[in-house]
Nucleic acid binder design. Structure first.
Length: 418
RNA sequence: GACCCCAUCGUCUAGCCCGGUCCAGGACAUCGCCCUUUCACGGCGGUAACGCGGGUUCGAAUCCCGCUGGGGUCGCCA
C-alpha cells in the first residue's frame, strides 16, 4: 500500500505553529515511506481574504521547504462531490433533513479507535451526545460542514494515514462512522499531542497577551529572523526524539528515522529560548553564502561585514544594529563604556597616528597596536578596549583587528581622532 | 456536566513496551570556573525530576488501581 497523507489547513490568514508541526510530521512520514504528501485547502465556510490567506499557507510551507506532491485542492471547488455524497447517505437512509439542515445518523454504540499514537481508544457517548447522537452534516444554508467534507475528501483522495492534532481525537468516531456509512474502511489515524505555551495554556493567535499571540504564528518566526532549518529542526524535537543525545539533526536523518508509533503521547510546551539557541547554532555553522542569502530580507549588506558578524547573532533581525557602525557614522554609543574610557583620548590619537602609517590588514594593525602599547609602557588592553568603543560604540563585537580592517582606514582614523 | 488523552529536572526529552545495570542520562535555561583583545563560541563543574496514595513483586521511574493535576472534545466553527 502506498502511503498518502495530507495537510488540510483552513485559510484563516495565518499559519499556526502547531499546524506547521502537523504539516511537518505529515511531510516527514510521506518522505519516510516514499508516500505522497497532499495539500488540501479547507475553505468551505469562510470566503474571507482567500487570496492572501492562501498565500500565507503556501509561503509558510515553502519557507520550511515542505513541498507537497499533490494539490492544492480546494474544497470550495468540490461542491458537486459533496452533493453527490450527501445524496448517497440519504439514499442509504443514513442521513435525514431536519429544520432545513441535513443530519447524519450516528451509531449509538461506543466506537473503538486504534490510534497509531494514542493506542486503542474506546469512546463512549457524552451525556449530551446520548440525548441525540446525530449531527449536522449540511447547514440549512446548504453548506456541508467540516466533519463531512473532511471525510469525503480523505475518502476521495484515498488518504491512508490521517496525521493531525489531538484536538480531533474525540471527533474521530464521527469520522469513522461516516467512512463506514460510505461502505469504506477508515484510514489509519495518528493523533499528535498539542503544543502549548510555556505556561501550559493553549497557543492562540488571539491570545490577549500579544507576546503569546505572536508565538502562535509562523509569521512571527519569519520576521524575527529565525532560520527555516532551525525552526523545522526544533519542531521535530517537539514530540519526537532521535533517542540519542543530539539536538541538531540533519533533516535527511530525521526522515530516515521518523515513524508514527514513536511519537510522544504527551503535550509539549513551546520553549522559544531553546529555539533561539538552536537558531544561533544554525547561524554559526552555516556557510557564509547561505547566511548572506538569509540576510537579504534583513537589510543585507557588504559580504565582508556580514561574514564578520555572522557568528555573533542569534536572530537575523539583530543584523541592522550589529552592522550599523559599518555603514554609518551615526551609531549609538554605550554611555557606560564611553565614560570608562573617557580619559583615553590622547592614547587614541597616538593610535590613529600609528595606524595612519600601517598597512590596512588585521595582522599589521595588531602589530601596530601592540607596538604602540610597548612604546607607551601600557597593556594592549588599554588601547584595545577604548579603540573598540571609539569605532563601534560598544564593548561587544567581532575580533577588533578584523573589524578595523573591514571598517576601513578613513572611518577608523576619523573615529579615533574624534 | 459527560466523554477522551496525558503525567521523568523550570522546559524539551532518554529510560518505561521486554521490572534489577537508574541514589535516573542528554539538551535549553540558570549558577560557578577556565579559555579569551570585548561579546559570543567552546571546555569543565554545580543546582535541579520519576505528582500523590495504594497494590503486584525478593525488587518498580518502569506493571495494575485510585486520586490529584494538565490538555482536549461534546457547534448549522474548522
Amino acid at each position: 500500500m502506498t502511503v498518502r497523507v495530507r495537510f488540510a489547513p483552513s485559510p484563516t490568514g495565518f499559519l499556526h505553529i502547531g499546524s506547521v508541526r502537523t504539516a511537518l510530521f505529515n511531510w516527514l512520514y510521506a518522505r519516510h515511506t516514499g508516500g505522497t504528501f497532499v495539500l488540501r485547502i479547507e475553505d468551505t465556510d469562510t470566503a474571507r481574504n482567500t487570496e492572501q490567506s492562501l498565500r500565507t499557507i503556501l509561503d509558510g510551507l515553502a519557507w520550511l521547504s515542505l513541498k507537497h506532491d499533490e494539490g492544492p485542492y480546494f474544497q470550495s471547488q468540490r461542491a458537486e462531490i459533496y452533493r453527490r455524497r450527501i445524496q448517497e447517505l440519504k439514499d442509504k437512509g443514513l442521513a435525514y433533513e431536519r429544520d432545513g439542515a441535513v443530519r447524519f445518523k450516528m451509531p449509538r454504540e461506543p466506537v473503538v479507535m486504534n490510534d497509531l499514537i494514542a493506542g486503542t481508544v474506546t469512546r463512549e457517548l457524552t451525556d449530551r451526545e446520548a440525548l441525540d447522537p446525530d449531527f449536522v452534516i449540511v447547514r440549512s444554508d446548504g453548506n456541508p460542514v467540516f466533519h463531512f467534507v473532511n471525510v469525503v475528501d480523505d475518502l476521495e483522495m484515498k488518504i491512508t494515514h490521517v496525521i493531525r492534532g489531538e484536538d480531533h481525537l474525540s471527533n474521530t468516531p464521527k469520522h469513522i462512522a461516516l467512512f463506514r456509512a460510505f461502505g469504506a474502511e477508515p484510514p489509519a489515524y495518528a493523533h499528535i499531542p498539542m503544543i502549548l505555551n510555556a505556561d501550559g495554556t493553549k497557543m492562540s493567535k488571539s491570545d490577549p497577551d500579544p507576546a503569546k499571540a505572536r508565538l502562535a504564528s509562523l509569521a512571527n518566526y519569519i520576521t524575527d529572523g529565525y532560520v527555516p532549518e532551525a525552526v523545522r529542526n526544533y519542531l521535530c524535537l517537539l514530540g519526537w526524539s532521535p533517542k540519542d543525545d543530539r539536538q541538531v539533526l540533519p533533516i535527511e536523518e530525521v526522515i530516515q528515522k521518523f515513524d508514527l508509533p514513536q511519537i510522544l503521547r504527551s503535550n509539549a510546551r513551546f520553549d522559544v529560548t531553546k529555539l533561539t539557541w538552536l537558531n544561533g547554532e544554525y547561524l554559526r555553522t552555516m556557510p557564509v553564502d547561505r547566511f548572506i542569502e538569509l540576510a537579504q530580507p534583513f537589510g543585507g549588506g557588504d559580504p565582508k561585514v556580514l561574514a564578520l558578524v555572522k557568528d555573533k547573532l542569534k536572530l537575523l533581525k539583530e543584523l541592522p544594529e550589529k552592522t550599523r557602525h559599518f555603514v554609518s557614522d551615526d551609531f549609538p554609543v554605550d554611555p557606560e563604556a564611553a565614560a570608562k574610557w573617557s580619559g583615553a583620548g590622547e592614547r587614541l590619537h597616538r593610535l590613529a597616528d600609528k595606524f595612519a602609517a600601517t598597512a590596512w590588514e588585521a595582522p599589521a594593525l595588531e602589530a601596530a597596536l601592540k607596538g604602540l602599547a610597548t612604546e607607551l609602557g601600557i597593556k594592549p588592553a588599554e588601547l584595545i578596549h577604548p579603540c573598540r568603543v571609539a569605532v563601534s560604540g560598544t564593548t561587544a563585537g567581532p575580533s577588533l583587528y578584523h573589524m578595523l580592517e573591514v571598517l576601513g582606514r578613513d572611518r577608523v582614523l576619523a573615529r579615533l581622532r574624534k
